[in-house]
Amino acid sequence: MSDQAVRALRRGVAALVLAGLVLAPWAVDDYTAALLARTLALGLVGVSVALLTGVAGLPTLGQTAPYAAGAYASALVAGRLSDVGPVQVAVAAAAGAALAAVTVPLVVSARGVVVLMITLAVGELVVTAAGRWRSVTGGTDGLAGIPPVRPLWGMPVLATDRARYLYTLAVVAVLLGVVLLVLRTRVGLLLRAGRDDEARLRASGHRVSAHVAGVHLAGGAVAGSAGALLVVAQQYVSPADFGFDTSALLLLGVVIGGAASVAGALVGTVVVIAARDWLFGVLPGQAPLVLGLAFVVTVYLLPGGERRPAVRGRLLPGVPNRRRPADRPTPSEVRV
């Protein structure tokens, strides 16, 4: 497949998915509408994964951590403080950003595959902690009986699955718009520059560590607000929503959608999660096997074998006394 054909294919899929997303709740039953709302929330987490992995070049498997923090924060706020949607989303975003801030010291100096390892460990540890911290999170039983949400002050509560789906879609659209707008400014340029040539950006006086910390906080906030949407969509939250499988599916969706494209990541994640939910419906026993084979096949079918991976740092962790200096250009990367 040539690059152009792939791009056209991606655009076609994106248009179809977007049209389908708006019309979907009228075409399906309530249960599917609720599943789709949860899928959209995961799509928003996919946006945060793409922000870190594709735009900033920091591959992550741990965005379920701020997602979980946001979901639990929003569930607690809904039960005790406020049933207004934007308040819950704001609190959840703050919780996600706070969790990301705690983990920034872990990741700020890591690059490449080490980021994958550390974020994976962080994500798993957060899920374990959520399962043990029974007084706040309800342990592995989760939190149920979350009161319904109001989209804005003074509006009636959302009582149907269709209404909750449309609310989720609206919030996802707004947040995706914000992310896309911010990435069009200087911020997006700086992040991409850091991904493509960190040493050069550093040499020209930019504080790359601050950029990395900032994008982690932003990614955490986006994933946290997705957590608020998850709570609205399924009115229940438990550690099972944030497992390692979820992180890997998100990464698959983001890679399929084109890691550097934030909107593509949303579409890719939605497609992958919807495929998973459908598979578990039709093949209850064999779903993980089919899903695993799908991962392997996807890796072989993905385009772009010759391109340099758009990831900060090298494949191996830094080795200062390596005989071959890292920044000596090899023939494939000579700049003109």
């Binding site: 591959p59 490449g112 890997a248 990464l251 991962f295 996807t298 890796v299 990831v311």
Partner: peptide, 11 residues
């Protein structure tokens, strides 16, 4: 590393 992670996770 992304494709490596995806492939090994699939396995």
């Amino acid at each position: 590393h992304l494709t490596q992670a995806l492939l090994t996770f699939g396995v």
